[in-house]
Design a binder for these strands. Structure first.
Length: 502
RNA sequence: UCCCCGAUAGCUCAAUCGGUAGAGCGAGCGGCUGUUAACCGCUAGGUCGUAGGUUCGAGUCCUACUCGGGGAGCCA
């Protein structure tokens, strides 16, 4: 019955021909004897123009009052029209209602994050979400393509595991037939085994962290891709990482130009994402953060915020004065709507003004030896127009398996990659300790049970080689690319601290 | 675990010093042959998160609780 249905994205091949499309009503604008319906079918949007007289009066009346998200098939002549979204529209000659939708909860106006999350099953149909998930599809394909084309073998690491990668305490416990087990928070340790067999490997799947973090950068379940490479040193690893990220960005720019535009993403900035990226050592980052330059940077940022705030306040005042005067009702209504927007902007800028001095203080008081904080990463990231590698962190701030630096035993050979524009960390990685005695010492130093790590030490007993790898967070990468503020919008069904809806 | 903010119509938000509960969107009815989150007119829609307190009078002030948002720590 539906075998002749044409996809909206294919309409360009049917200009001046009659076709039938099937989809859901995004919105409709009845205008007397004319109805405009924008239909979405998953491949794109198409405006359908229905004139009274061209279809039965009964159907015309039914379609005239059709609710958002009603499903129907529409038949008509494809016509190129610049005025229409997507460039083509349908001059309707027939239609068939499949299912009428009444009182669809998500309206064309703005909604709060809580409401949208409760309606996640419906929110996925919205334009912004559709664009983000088209881009997610490209990103995931690009990830697989990059590794497959560069000599990597895919090894699926287990989701149920008995071993711990990072420090414990952020693991989901599972009752495994009465035995303790965890949901995997990294595939790294398993991949190290595989790297000694295949040389270059990667794993890609969901990962689980029971961190009690309520921020826009955290999920308890997220997707991470982790390459692991034998016979490599830190500079080589950084090169792979920057080529990898540049490749993803290039593919998204090629395949999702329209989606990026709809999302109002910063395409020009993305075009700058080509190797080489900036490289800073942790010690250099420390110097920058505690320097006068950073204080000046933060002060300039604050001045910007204050100026923006004044502009918003002046606008609000002007509108409020106007609203008190003798003016038409329609103008009153417009002003009310504008005021709501402006007050929301004002609240946002107030938060920024409040946080700025705190972040400046945190940066100035940053002590060598501490881990880089979220706000510190944001500052460094804002100061650069391309991603920044921060390498060689203090040993005490990092995990036991990271390789100690030969020149400076106080630091390890690790790196974080910070995305530009203030988004922060999207990659964390390191060289792994490949010296048996040093690794044994680290395990003891951390007080871990030796018997749990005998297998890991075996990798150093039998033909150890320098090796390393990193993990890239898919949702964080997407949030950066799309300009989406919250990574919860970058996974179909987000799992957050204390909240699983469906 | 800690800090800050919030909860008013289906949704997003107003309500000045404590004094009659408002707007837009959405819904319903009517109008309009080129609309782009259309526009114009009319209608319906409320236990102001919960419990207590202060007061002649509380959406507004105080206390506790519940739920939500953002951030710190930690991280992708």
């Amino acid at each position: 019955m539906f075998k002749d249905i044409v996809k909206i994205s294919d309409l360009k091949n049917y200009n001046e021909k009659e076709v039938t499309i099937g989809g859901w009503v995004r919105h409709s604008r009845p205008s007397g004897k004319l109805i405009f319906i924008v239909l979405r079918d998953g491949s794109g949007l198409c405006q359908c123009v229905i004139e009274k007289g061209k279809i039965s009066d009964e159907l015309f009346e039914q379609i005239k009052r059709v609710g958002a998200e009603s499903s129907l098939t529409i038949t008509g002549m494809v016509r190129k029209d610049e005025r229409s979204v997507g460039g083509y529209e349908l001059v309707v000659s027939g239609a068939r209602m499949l299912s009428e939708s009444v009182d669809y909860p998500i309206t064309p106006k703005s909604h709060g994050i809580d409401f949208l999350l409760k309606n996640r099953h419906l929110h996925l149909r919205s334009q912004r979400q559709w664009c983000i998930f088209r881009i997610r599809h490209t990103v995931i394909n690009a990830i697989r393509q990059f590794f497959n084309d560069n000599g990597f073998t895919l090894i699926d690491s287990p989701i149920l595991t008995g071993i711990v990668g990072e420090e414990a305490g952020s693991l989901f416990n599972v009752d495994y037939f009465g035995m303790p087990a965890f949901l995997s928070q990294t595939g790294q340790l398993h991949l190290e085994c595989a790297a000694m067999s295949f040389g270059r490997v990667y794993c890609f799947g969901p990962t689980f962290r029971a961190e009690k973090s309520k921020t826009r950068r955290h999920l308890t379940e997220f997707w991470m891709v982790e390459p692991e490479v034998a016979f490599i040193e830190l500079p080589g690893l950084l090169e792979i990482a920057e080529n990898f990220v540049s490749f993803i960005v290039k593919r998204v720019l090629e395949d999702n130009e329209a989606e990026l535009k709809t999302l109002d993403a910063d395409v020009e900035s993305l075009k700058k994402i080509v190797p080489p990226f900036y490289r800073l050592t942790y010690t250099q980052a420390h110097e920058i953060l505690t320097s006068q330059k950073t204080q000046d940077f933060m002060a300039a940022q604050l001045a910007d915020f204050v100026k923006t705030k004044q502009e918003i306040e002046e606008k609000i005042k002007a509108l409020e004065t106007e609203a008190k005067g003798q003016i038409k009702q329609w103008r009153q209504d417009k002003i009310a709507a504008e005021l709501i927007e402006l007050r929301s902007d004002l609240a946002e800028i107030d938060t920024k003004i409040e946080n700025n001095p705190k972040h400046a203080k945190l940066a100035s008081e940053f002590k060598w030896g501490e881990d880089l904080g979220g706000s510190d990463e944001t500052i460094i990231s804002l100061m650069h127009d391309k991603p920044v590698f921060v390498t060689h962190y203090p040993r005490q701030a990092k995990a036991f398996y990271m390789k100690q630096d030969g020149d400076n035993p106080k630091v390890v050979q690790n790196f974080d990659m910070l995305a530009p524009a203030g988004f922060g960390e999207i990659i964390g990685g390191s060289m792994r300790e490949d010296n048996y005695d040093v690794l044994l010492g680290k395990i003891k130093e951390h007080g871990y049970k030796l018997e749990n790590y005998e297998w890991y030490l075996d990798l150093r007993r039998y033909g150890s080689v320098p090796h390393g790898g990193f993990g890239l967070g898919v949702e964080r990468t997407l949030a950066w690319l799309t300009g989406e503020k919250h990574i919860r919008q970058c996974i179909a069904f987000p799992r957050m601290m204390d909240k699983i809806l469906i």
